[in-house]
Structure formats: C-alpha cells, structure tokens
Design a protein around this nucleic acid. Structure first.
Lengths: 343, 343
DNA sequence: TATTAGCACTCTAATTAAATGAGTGCTAAC
DNA sequence: GTTAGCACTCATTTAATTAGAGTGCTAATA
C-alpha cells in the first residue's frame, strides 16, 4: 500500500525532526509543524498507521516515534532533495598530494571526517595483475642491491636486498638486463617456472643471486595487491549519544582500529559487485555487527580505467544524509579531475 | 624524613593491591596481608602517617587509600623488582619486516599494545642531515621521470616527476650525471645557491627541467625528516574504568588519533634531552593535559649511531609497571640486534 | 466522514529517602 | 607499642515517589 501525501509529509517531518534532535518526536511537535495544520490527535492517528506500516517505531509505550530502518530507507530513497552545497573546495589541497597515493587517500579520509563530523574510511584500490613496466637494479653498497620496480599505473616500489657475496657493477648490470628482458610486460600470474628457469640459465653462476632478487621482487609486487584501508575521525562517533554508550562505542572504535572488518564494507568483495556510485546502508543492512546502530554511505572512485576504490562514511542513523551524499559527490568530481590529469 | 621499614612494607602492600584491583584499599585488607601480622588498627595508624607524608590519599573520608603520584613514584623508583619475563619471543616476527622501517615501527606498536593491553606509540627517528648517497633518474614515460634517492642509512625515497616537454634518454642520462656529481655526499643544508647555480650552468638549456627535478628531490628528502608517530591499541584505555568515563576517554582517544600532542611525549624535543633509557612519567609529570590520570613509560631505541627514536606506553596510573618495563627492555634488545645486523 | 478536544492511562526519567556497608579516627585497655 | 571496640562518615545501593511526556480511545463537532 502506498502512503498518502499527508502521511508522507508527516513521515518526513518526523524524520527531519529526529535527525536534528536525536530525540523521539511526539504528535504535538509535529502538529505545530507549520505547513500542515492538524491537531495532535490527528497526527496521532496517522502515526499509529505509519507505525503499523513499519516506517516508525516507539522506543516504549509513552514515547514519541523514531524512524525505523524502513523509514530511513524511504527517506533516503525518496525524500532527500538534492541540495547544492558550498563545501570547502578541496581540490587545491588534494592536488598537492596527488603523487603518493597512500598519502592522498589518508588525506581524503581526513578531509571527509573533518567536513562531515562522522567517521570516514577509504580503501586503497586493488591493483591486481598490473604488468611490470621495468625493473632497475642498482648496487648501493658492496653487499646491498636496490631493486626499483615500476608497474603500470605508475606504481613504484623499491626494496633493498642484502647479499652475502660482494657484487660488482658488471653483475648487477647483467642481471638487470636479464630481468628486464624476461619480465617486462608480464604480471605476477604470468611469471611461471618456465620463465624463471630460462632466466636462471642465462644468469649462469649468479642463478642463486637472481633467485634472491626475484623473491624480493615478488614480495614487493604482492604488497601492491594488499587492500589497505585508511580511516579518520573515529572519535567523532563519541559525539552522538546514541552511539557512545560504553559498550557500543568500544565495539565501534575497535572495529575502526582493527580495520579487518571494514573490508566487508569497502573492501574487495563489495567492489566486485556492481555497486558503483553512491550507496546507503542503514542499520542491519551493513554486514558488520558493531554498526547495527549506524548508517553507512559509500561511494566508488576510479583511479584509472578499471581500478576502483571505495570511500565510506559511518555515522548515526540520523546522519545528515544530504550533506554526506553531496560531499561525496563533490569529492568524486575533484578526485576524477585529479586522476584524469595525472594519467 | 625517611620511611620506616614497616611503613615501606605497608605502602608496597597498598600499591600492589591497588594495581591489581583498581579499588581503594582499606586497613583490614592490609592487615590480612600475610607477612606483617598487624591489626587493622595499627595499619590505620601507619596509614594516617603515610597520608600525612603524601604517599597515599583518600578519595573520600570513608574510603580506603590509593597511592598518590608521589606514592607511585616511590614505588617505581624503589620497589619495582626486576622480573624476567617470558614474553612471546618477538624476534622472529620482527626480523621479517626489517627493511621497511615504517612497517616495522607500526608493527612494533601493535606488538606492544597487544602484549601489554595498554596503548603504545612509536616515533620514527629523526633522520635530519643525512647525506645523499646517490640519485637515480629514469625516464618512465615520455613525460615522466622517476627520481630515486638513496641516503645514508639506506633510506630510499622515490618520486615521479611530470614534465611538459618530451625527454629522451640522453637528457636524462646527462642530468643524472650532473645531479650525482654535485649532490653526492651532501646533506640538505649543504645544498646552497652556489651549487645550484653551477648545476644549472652545466645543464644549459635544460636548466628549468633540472630545477623541477631538484624541487622534487628537495620535497622528497624533507619528508624523511618528518617525525611520524605510530600508535596502536588506543581503544585499550576503555578497559580501565578510571580512564573510560565519557569525558576522559574522549579526550584521550582524540589525543591518540590526532597524534600532534604525542610529539611532546616521544617526539623531537624529548629526544634531545639526555633522557635515554627507560623513563616513567606519572600523572601530571606528563606534559599532555589529557593524560593527567595516566602513566607513561618511554624508552629510547637506537636505529644506528646517533639516530634515536622513542617508544611510549600509556596506561592508567595503576599500570603493571614491572611488566611494561621488562617488555620494553626485552624489545630494546631485540631491536638492537636487528638493527646491528642490518647495517 | 474527517477532525478534534479531552481524559484516563502508561511508562520513563528525575527526585527523594532510606538502608547498607566499607572504612576511618579515636579512646581506653592490654 | 599494639589492639579491641565503638561511634561516626560518606559513597553506593535500593526503593519509593513524583513529574511529565506522549499515547489511545471516545465522544463531540464541523
């Protein structure tokens, strides 16, 4: 059954009011609401209906109503009017940090948390199966070799390799050529035993050294593949009474500190599903137990063709959805411009 | 005035008891304490004296006594017996991470927090005035140059530089040689206008490109110099009732999240003073307001000759000092071995 | 038929009052 | 010097009371 226009208005009024105050809202409050001139009794009747339909609930018999998850959902899906927003222009700040992705993302998290007063999290995109552009070996010291690996998407990793025997420039140069001849253009899955065997053949007496180097490269490349998550503003949740009682706050803060569970929200799995754009999860809709009293808004950003990461904002159910959504949209645009320019 | 032997025993008993329970301890509790057979009345008399001397305080008239900061100080200075500790052998875990210092330190923080159940923080050492070993330019793409900078202490930084015009291998090679000729063996303070001018002269028509590269190098090198702080286990403070009431917990957690104030504890300034080894700060002895109800134990580690960082553990005043100190000592030894081996 | 006024009822939260009990200080006896 | 004993204090707990917000229902009204 659809809601009548009046019911929608009342529901909207209830939710708006609750978003502001965080307190259950009673019939009298709504009846004083300017544009619908109805007595509290009438409102009560409508409220009873709305409750029966599952849009609002009473925390206890003689309290006002608060929106149920279904109520919030209705609000988010329908009532939220687009609102242009004069958020601080983040772009300049962002550009400065654009070349170190980790720093940039941590900074994005911080910006979001500060701007919204909620908790933010950002996942580093999953770079799996990026091809190796080239490898560069350098002899740093008599028993140290530096390997710099450049991959598609300009991911740069370096690793210092300790070796037992002295190595001279000649050998390093030779190994360098071998590595590049065989590895250029391959991703991790394509480097198989056959290739490795061939490389070793060419390396001759330095096969074991080559082996060490390959190991180091493998470790370094596989690091790229780790989905890391940056968070900021975890303590913001303490600002909202409904989240900050001892037990809930402990659980939530722990979730943010540990970060493991956050992958369920903005990590790999979520990214593969076709859930691009902005998504809102309310209460039990999130897969994380400790967030059952929270709402989560996520957005997908694209760092380059096919490489996605996610951003999430966690707050109380009565979060300012409009602001969060428009902030995220704004940010998406800024990020897009930066990344486009970059590549 | 010095304390009598009996007074010392009683004080010790009070503190030990309080460390365990977190509750004020009364005279009867102490009188039941095995090795001194005294009635509660006698204990009460002694307690009154100890209170007058400032070693213990009563939270209110009809409560037991708790140690004052002075009492804790007495305990830490004198009573703490060395206790060998069978801490999980961290060594193996640590060695694996030794080549990426940031990851290692974050990991150290985590280990400490998990082992002690308090909050830990680790400062990255201050590498100021490290000399440049060499710089390596590589042309990654037609308009991208990769600069890898290796400094003393095997600090490796890399940065991608975008350039307007196409660059060919020749130019990169030439600039590479110029850079290394002039910069090798210098630290940041030694690179002055005179040197820069000379370099530009040699670069000829590529002077402005060289300039861009120098800028990038300068930025990258100065990053090394940032003292960063890694924390772990911030939520552990919620385990201690005396720290976890709403207000205190909020303040403390915020301090740990922001990290700025932590530099006062384990950052630069503290390092320059001759406060090597293990230090204990109790209550107001810490310079951070939000920690006035906490105790802080710090230790200094040496990553190589003259390069120091600090580790801190924050917990309630009734923290298990023995465990914390012995854990830190243990860790110092392990770290030392790893760093010695490395260089 | 839709709306509203009015009233009894419910339940939480705040307030007050009383009971509990841990622990002290002091005095007088050992 | 030590201890038993008792009166006293004060935070904490428990219970009882009150106040107030808000509802549901009924009967009157437009």
């Amino acid at each position: 059954m659809d809601l009548s226009e009046r019911q929608v208005k009342i529901l909207q009024a209830i939710i708006c009011n609750y978003l502001e105050t965080g307190e259950p809202v009673g019939s009298r409050t709504i009846s004083k609401y300017s544009d619908l001139n109805l007595s509290s009794a009438t409102i009560r009747n409508e409220m009873a209906d709305l409750e029966e339909l599952g849009y609002i609930v009473q925390p206890h018999t003689s309290a006002g109503r608060i929106p149920s998850d279904k109520g919030y959902r209705f609000y988010v899906d329908g009532l939220m009017k687009e609102q242009v927003q004069e958020i601080v222009d983040m772009k300049k700040d962002l550009e400065d940090k654009s070349d170190k992705i980790e720093i940039l993302l941590q900074y994005v998290a911080k910006l979001l948390a500060t701007n919204t007063n909620y908790t933010s999290m950002v996942s580093k995109p999953h770079y799996k199966y990026k091809k190796i552009k080239f490898v560069q070996l350098t002899d740093v010291d008599v028993n140290q070799i530096l390997a710099v690996i450049v991959m598609e998407g300009n991911i740069i990793r370096n690793r210092l390799i300790m070796v037992e025997d002295l190595v001279d420039k000649e050998i390093v140069l030779k190994l360098n050529i071998i590595l590049n001849t065989f590895l250029q253009g391959l991703d991790m899955t394509e480097i198989n035993m056959q290739i490795i065997t061939k490389m070793k053949e060419q390396a001759g007496q330095y096969a074991s050294l080559l082996n060490e180097i390959l190991d180091a490269i493998a470790k370094e490349v596989s690091e790229v593949d780790n989905v890391e998550i940056y968070t900021s503003g975890a303590t913001n949740i303490l600002k909202y009474p409904e989240l900050s009682d001892r037990e809930k706050a402990t659980e939530l803060l722990y979730t943010f500190e540990e970060k493991k569970q956050l992958t369920q929200l903005i990590g790999d799995k979520f990214q593969e599903e076709e859930q691009r754009g902005i998504q809102v999860y309310i209460g039990d809709e999130t897969p994380v137990e400790s967030m059952k009293d929270c709402a989560l808004v996520t957005a997908t950003y694209e760092i380059e063709e096919g490489v996605y990461g996610k951003i999430g904002i966690v707050g109380p159910k009565r979060m300012d959805y409009e602001k969060v959504v428009s902030t995220l949209q704004n940010l998406m645009i800024q990020l897009d411009e930066i990344f486009k320019k970059k590549s």
